[in-house]
Nucleic acid binder design. Structure first.
Length: 435
DNA sequence: TCTGGGGTCCTAGGACCC
DNA sequence: TCTGGGGTCCTAGGACCC
């Protein structure tokens, strides 16, 4: 019988900032999304003060009043720390699925004394990475998520580990969790379920699967079966190849002129193509979209277009060129744009890329050029080396990040220096030496 | 001043073919 | 007078996740 565990970092982004600045411990802290737009992570102290997933500008008074510490998100830092946490977890379970930057499913089948093992996982991650985690253990992934949720919230659960395998507490746990909080049940489905008097995970587990299949779909039916302990969802051991890769971002300021949008789309195309080359893929189509700001009263326009490439490519210049043709096709004067994006589709492994008779360039040269471009940007930061169409000066459309930890600390450290510092901190620990 | 970014899967319906 | 039926592929949209 399979046993799954999900290990989830508590308030991950906040925990990362605390690692960098230990004086934040015990204080209310929040981390903001790109553009400092919304709250994406909250410490328990901030949650206790009633901070939700709010728009930052709507809660500024509250933040001042309670002296809440505010940070812009710093993804290179979080990604570095995430890698360290995952490396530790892998030692506890070679069969592991990295589910997101702050969570992983582990296969604990055959492990005896699951409670102790869970505690050991938690203590080891805390000791060697400085990140607190919660551990849920159960017979299915969905039940493990539910256990994890209770472990994180309930003060009765000791040390953030809850094991529901053969537990007499299982029914009680299912009754305590609302249907809307079950993994796989979102707001919409929860509303419809409520109409049928299905309010809790327990109700969903005991709903008739045939009826669920007829009334909803196979996804929700699987979720219900998993809640009964019937295994439907297996571990995804090797991450599947991406089917699309996107880069999109709200602008620092509303943009109406074509020239700026050319810089934006060139930059987003370059970013998404770099992300694609990191996964060693090539794309067969490029989708470009623009959006106006739906929160303000003025003419709205949400255009988008997908253009095919004559042959799959991972060459930044070609992708930028086609993205700019797409922009030409959708751009309309007279609107104030708030967001744009470039999505690469029809992805295939770059190695399988068929060269076309129409290829006008030397493939080896392009590969070398892209490697040099990516290498320099990896070392010195994204956008260090760029195409002319991306623009050279700091422009108004670029992202706001007014609360980066580097600026909060001493105003000197760049993100990359921070990552380096975290590496150095980590290297002083016993386990990293052992690695 | 001002409301995230990046994905996946499933389904319904239209186009097209024989 | 009358306008099939079945299959496949593609796309858009809706649902979900972090």
């Amino acid at each position: 019988m399979p046993v799954f565990s999900i290990v989830d970092c508590n308030s991950f982004f906040v925990s990362c900032e605390r690692l960098l600045n230990p004086s934040l411990k015990g204080k209310p802290v929040i981390v903001l999304s790109n553009n400092d737009g919304m709250v994406v992570a909250r410490s328990n102290e901030a949650k206790a003060l009633g901070i939700q997933w709010d728009a930052y500008h709507l809660i500024k008074d509250k933040i001042r009043y309670y002296d809440i510490q505010v940070y812009s998100s710093n993804y290179p830092l979080y990604s570095e720390i995430s890698g360290r946490v995952m490396a530790i977890l892998k030692q506890f379970a070679p069969r592991m699925e990295v589910y997101s930057c702050d969570e992983a499913f582990l296969d604990l089948t055959g492990i005896e004394n699951l409670d102790t093992y869970g505690q050991l996982i938690r203590e080891t991650v805390l000791q060697h990475c400085g990140i607190p985690v919660s551990v849920g253990i159960a017979k299915t992934k969905t039940l493990a998520k539910l256990a994890n949720r209770i472990a994180k919230k309930s003060p009765k659960v000791k040390n953030g580990v809850l094991n529901l395998v053969d537990s007499h507490y299982l029914d009680d746990a299912l009754k305590r969790v609302e249907a809307k909080d079950v993994w796989g049940v979102g707001r919409r489905w929860a509303e419809r379920l409520r109409g049928h008097s299905i309010l809790t995970a327990y109700d969903l587990a005991h709903a008739d699967p045939k009826w669920l299949l007829k009334t909803f779909n196979v996804v929700l039916t699987r979720t219900a079966l998993e809640l009964r302990g019937q295994f439907c969802l297996s571990l995804q051991l090797d991450p599947p190849l991406s089917k699309s890769i996107m880069h999109s971002m709200s602008f620092g300021k509303l943009v109406e002129d074509y020239a700026s949008l050319r810089q934006v789309i060139s930059t987003y195309a370059a970013e998404s193509s770099a992300k694609m080359r990191r996964e060693q893929l090539a794309c067969g189509s490029v989708h470009v979209f623009l959006q106006t700001n739906r929160f303000i009263q003025e003419p709205q326009y949400f255009p988008g277009i997908t253009l095919p490439l004559p042959y799959p490519t991972d060459h930044a210049a070609e992708i930028i060129q086609i993205a700019l043709s797409a922009l030409d096709a959708i751009f309309q004067d007279g609107y104030r744009y708030n967001k744009g994006g470039v999505m690469l589709g029809q992805l295939i492994p770059a190695s399988e890329r068929q060269t076309s008779l129409l290829d006008s360039y030397n493939r080896d040269k392009v590969v070398g050029l892209m490697q040099a471009l990516d290498g320099i940007n990896r070392q010195f930061g994204p956008g260090t080396l760029r195409y002319g169409s991306q623009g050279f000066r700091k422009a108004a459309w670029q992202m706001r990040q007014n609360h980066l930890s580097s600026q909060n600390n001493q105003g000197l450290m760049t993100e990359h220096q921070q990552v380096k510092r975290i590496c150095e901190l980590g290297q002083s620990t016993a386990l990293i030496r052992a690695l």
